[in-house]
Design a protein around this nucleic acid. Structure first.
Length: 770
DNA sequence: GGAGGCCTCGGAAGG
DNA sequence: CGAGGCCTCC
């Protein structure tokens, strides 16, 4: 196997694999075989006789970890299962479950995700009677997260004069107080948020020399993927763990750093040479993925960034076809043209659907493309978006699991104490919160001993609370011993959640119910898998897998990690995803859509140069996903939140040298625009009065009415009928030809024909007339 | 205490 | 547009 192992590598890759001792930095350009190098490096270590238990490999996504592990197992055999490989968060959560008792955390602590955090912060803002316009939850969360990431505790935060000055001058002097309250609430809930996992890991390594020593000894070889995306807290953990052996290998590409917004510090990779003076650097510059055209175009774009490590990406691959640019009149047309291009390529070259990817800047763009593809009967899969685990029904059931696993978990308790409704209302809950705050214990501890706590509540309410708590207590006891799937089903039934969901027969309700079943399926699959002892690596075939075991890392999972019963991932479908989630992937044919100023680059990035550089790196990542062909597209007008806006093509398009890109020949639209508000009024009296002014371009084939009237069913629709005459100054007289889906909460579509071949589409979506 | 109407306001990205 | 929150009414 060894010979084969090295035959598969080029010289730079081989050197990076063989240099196992001492600090090593691998600068890996896009498509240069980075994963292969990392995989083979670990395989080589195992072949050399290093115990897999002594190898720590950190990645950024669960998917990357899983794929790498599978490949290593394929190379070296099953013992590679024992390599400590996972995301920073999952590996440190695992360690914190073992060592956390030293800093006051039980091993069953709950991990709060961003939604949970947001709920807690919102509650605190309300309890403090603060104005959430000034104390915006998002802002407070960002301040707290940034502090934790730079290893600043709430005490540090509150005793720092400069910070206090900053918060005061921005009108939020109580930010530090909220930080402390938030932290107290987490601690009394036995919970950590994502930042705490990294923060507390640092505390452990800082304050407990024996822990530091234990893990330094254990992790003799450390590998870090995507090093350019590490933040300070992560950087410091790695540095401490590696301090003794210094067998550390970091792999990254500064040109693909796209997570500065969440604290990733590109300086970590730039400073590696200072941290480890004896380091060796290997640059992987040969691209195996893309055509010459794509590589050159990407190089020409990224060269516009000031901040970067010099490297020259090149390829032996063929020239390939030029990059194509699609210009569309509207977002809908963009979707149709892209779908059509996919259809044609598919037919002409006999390609599978999975050869195609549509990459966009924001998830909101996915819908148009999904619809366009469906019209041509091309199946597609949308990656990411609203995560499975963020759906309300899933969070609710998980909250029951969480609460049973850790009754101190206040966020879980508040979520389900009255859902499904059991007569424990807001007034009661507020009373409980106040009492818990006064006595500095968790709400569960208060309601566990309601009589002795002498809280004045009606007899009826007391009984309801006591029923609830007995139910949770019984769950708690059972969940440690019963089979996980049985237990999950039991909770879903006796909590009343299943019944609640099952009664809703609307399509949304049915889908929610199916989601719950899917979660149960995930538990089932887990319950049926063999248990692997984390210490010895041995498989225990007959061990009962319980629900509290399942709950360990649930907050760290994303929807990509759950096996979707309704959608086999091997099915042949076109891939739709954001550029961020496309990182690390490659496709023969890539479409980068929505290339408009204010969208890609995003409007928020345009104020500072560093943000714009990150957007450019993002575009670079998008381009370098393509193996064979790359097509760019933009629309000249786009609906955003119901408003039609005019768009300019992205500046990034013009950064591609003309020799590599085909511009569309004909101008499809003139740049002028006009308002048709008055004409609307004339044509359809009463409607335009409630419509926002809309601007449509000349020669425009489709327009929609726009309104902001909320979710009220249209009551007027009878006023517009098929056959009705409409007058339009520009398009002439027409007739309403068709109306679809008229009715409460539905969209009414009205077609009418104007002069010549033009057709106007009016969409009266939930329009209200006074 | 709860359901549902009505209005406001946001607007990216992952563990 | 649509999620979330407030407010009213039952």
């Amino acid at each position: 196997m060894s010979t084969q192992l090295f035959d598969d590598l080029n010289e730079a890759q081989r050197e990076a694999v063989l240099e196992t001792e001492g600090p090593v930095m691998v600068i890996a350009g896009a498509g240069s075989g980075k994963t292969r190098t990392l995989t083979y490096r670990v395989a080589h270590l195992i072949e050399k006789g290093i115990d897999p238990f002594n190898i720590l490999a950190l990645t950024f996504t669960n998917k990357a970890a899983r794929e790498m592990k599978d490949r290593i197992i394929a190379l070296t055999g099953a013992e590679a299962q024992n390599v400590w490989m996972g995301t920073f968060h999952s590996v440190f959560a695992r360690i914190l479950r073992i060592e956390g008792h030293r800093i006051g955390y039980p091993s069953n602590f709950t991990i709060y995700d961003t939604d949970d955090t947001k709920r807690v912060i919102k509650n605190l803002i309300r309890e403090n009677n603060l104005d959430d316009k000034i104390y915006q939850p998002g802002f407070i969360i960002h301040r707290i997260s940034a502090a934790k990431t730079s290893l600043m505790s709430d005490e540090d935060y509150n005793s720092n004069a400069e910070i206090h000055e900053y918060d005061s001058s921005s009108g939020r002097p109580l930010t530090g107080k909220l930080f402390s309250q938030y932290q107290n609430r987490l601690i009394r809930s036995s919970a950590m948020d994502f930042d705490d996992l990294l923060f507390n890991m640092n505390v452990l390594l800082r304050d407990f020399p024996d822990v530091l020593y234990k893990y330094q000894k254990k992790f003799r070889y450390i590998l870090v993927d995507e090093y350019q995306d590490t933040n300070y807290a992560q950087y410091l953990i790695i540095k401490k763990l590696a301090a003794n052996n210094e067998n550390i290998c970091v792999v990254g590409d500064d040109a693909q750093s796209i997570y500065a917004f969440r604290g990733a510090n590109i300086q970590n990779i730039l400073n590696f040479r200072n941290d480890y003076p004896d380091h060796k650097v290997f640059k992987l510059e040969q691209n195996y993925r893309s055509t010459k055209t794509i590589v050159k175009a990407a190089n020409a774009v990224i060269v516009n960034n000031k901040n970067q490590i010099f490297k020259e990406i090149w390829t032996k691959n063929e020239d390939g076809s030029r990059i194509r640019l699609i210009r569309a009149a509207t977002d809908t047309e963009e979707g149709n043209l892209v779908a059509q291009a996919i259809f044609e390529n598919k037919m002409n070259y006999q390609l599978s659907n999975a050869s195609f990817a549509i990459l966009y800047r924001t998830n909101a763009q996915s819908r148009t493309h999904e619809e366009s593809l469906r019209k041509l009967n091309i199946p597609c899969r949308i990656w990411g978006g609203v995560s499975f685990y963020q759906r309300k029904e899933i969070k609710d059931l998980l909250a029951y699991f969480r609460l049973s696993n850790n009754p101190k978990d206040e966020d879980a308790l508040l979520r389900v104490i009255n859902y499904p409704a059991r007569g424990i209302g807001k007034t009661t809950v507020d009373k409980l919160i106040v009492t818990a705050d006064e006595r500095k214990v968790s709400i569960f501890e208060i309601i566990e001993n309601l009589p002795s706590n002498r809280i004045k509540l009606p007899e009826n309410t007391l009984r309801k609370i006591s029923d609830f708590i007995n139910m949770i207590k019984s769950f708690s006891v059972q969940m440690k011993v019963r089979n996980g799937y049985e237990m999950a089903k039991h909770i879903a039934l006796s909590s009343g959640l299943f019944k609640e969901m099952n009664e809703d027969k609307t399509p949304e309700g049915v889908s929610r119910f199916e989601n719950l079943e899917e979660l149960l399926n995930a538990v089932k699959e887990f319950s049926e898998s063999p248990r692997i002892d984390p210490e010895t690596g041995e498989m225990e075939m007959n061990a009962i897998r319980t629900l509290d075991e399942f709950m360990q890392d649930i907050a760290l999972l994303t929807d990509v990690d759950i096996k979707d019963a309704k959608d086999d991932k091997n099915e042949d479908k076109v891939n739709l995803m954001t550029v961020h989630s496309a990182k690390g992937l490659e496709f023969p044919y890539v479409f980068i859509v929505g290339l408009e100023e204010n969208l890609f680059p995003s409007i928020q990035s345009l104020n500072s140069r560093s943000d714009l550089e990150e957007e450019r790196r993002l575009f670079y990542v998008a381009l370098t996903r393509a193996q064979q062909k790359c097509t760019l597209s933009y629309a000249e007008s786009r609906y955003r939140w119901g408003n039609l806006t005019m768009c300019e093509p992205s500046r990034f398009i013009s950064e591609i040298p003309e020799e590599h890109i085909d511009f569309p020949k004909k101008t499809s639209l003139k740049k002028e625009s006009f308002s048709i508000e008055e004409n609307f009024s004339a044509a359809l009296p009463g409607i335009a009065s409630r419509s926002k002014k809309i601007i449509i371009p000349e020669n425009f084939q489709k327009i929609s009415t726009v309104n902001n009237s909320g979710n009220t069913p249209p009551s007027y629709v009878e006023d517009i009928q098929v056959g009705m005459e409409v007058n339009h100054e520009r398009f002439g007289n027409g007739k309403v030809l068709n109306m679809e889906g008229v009715g409460p909460n539905k969209k009414a579509t009205v077609f009418f024909q104007g002069i010549g071949q033009k057709q106007l589409l009016l969409r009266f979506a939930r329009l209200r007339i006074i």
